[in-house]
Amino acid sequence: MPVIEVNGLTKTYGGRTVVDGVSFTVEEGEIFGILGPNGAGKTTTVECVEGLRSPDAGTVRVAGLDPVADHDRVTLLLGAQLQESELQAKITVREALELYSAFHPRPADWRPLAERLGLVERLDTRFAKLSGGQKQRLFIALALVGDPRVVVLDELTTGLDPRARRDTWRLIEDVRDSGVTVLLVTHFMEEAQRLCDRVAVIDKGRVAALDTPAGLIGRTAASTIVSFTPSRPLDEHELAALPDVNSVTRKGDRVHLGGSDETVNALLSLLARHRVTAGQLRVTDATLDDAFLDLTTPATAPTTATTDREEA
């Protein structure tokens, strides 16, 4: 049974439709990612799930409850980490954890949580004196301290250094393994690829794609990229005629081909036929980054990242 159901969600601010008919369901126990460029409507969508905003159209259900009408009940089973929200400047980490524990009839023990998040040395530090990363980790702890069934994390690793980010990812996986459903808003591809079971890509208020990270990558025009330096120049038309090819670009002597596994096989036999050797041959899988760029429209004129592909 899905624990979060969003159906035809629409939200308009001052005549501007920020969320336009978004639908998705999140199954119990999965990490579901919401990915999208800035201003795509990600945060507004999860704010409707958290019951902070009421939809203009469509329905949102969390464990079958309406987050606005049944707000009190939903807050008991949903923990939230918000973007750009602070605590009282002079509250200590310990006081904040104790306070938020007191909100719940059956809270999790905050001590192991603080330990897991590396906050033990900071228990007596006031909020205003914490570093950005420490604040972020405290917010994650506060979202989890109520022992929720669902936790919504909005841009959770923003402001964390790479090590803290990886530690946080492990924590989120532990949280999921303990049976908690995670709804994750992010613009980090690596984070989505590493953590999410499924991802909804939101662009301009609509769901542009919804799939597993691997599925999204597989859908991109070029799921495999091969690059090499030929020992002799090759005929561009022959390269473009290879199966599944969708882009051929040259940077100096180096040739980049976007395509599939088929392309790679055909390329190798083409090179053998012409007795051309391929220097520094590299075959890489496309990443979620590539999928993301394919699925979302740039806010301004095409960026350099997309022009490569458009030459094909």
């Binding site: 958290e50 019951g51 902070l52 009190d72 807050t75 008991l76 949903l78 923990g79 939230a80 918000l82 750009e84 929200s85 602070e86 605590l87 009282q88 938020y100 909100f103 719940h104 109520g146």
Partner: peptide, 16 residues
């Protein structure tokens, strides 16, 4: 200050 710094908003996501 509590409103401007999102403290009231954060509290809206809790049972309190």
């Amino acid at each position: 200050g509590y409103r401007e710094r999102g403290i009231l908003r954060r509290l809206s996501t809790t049972p309190v």
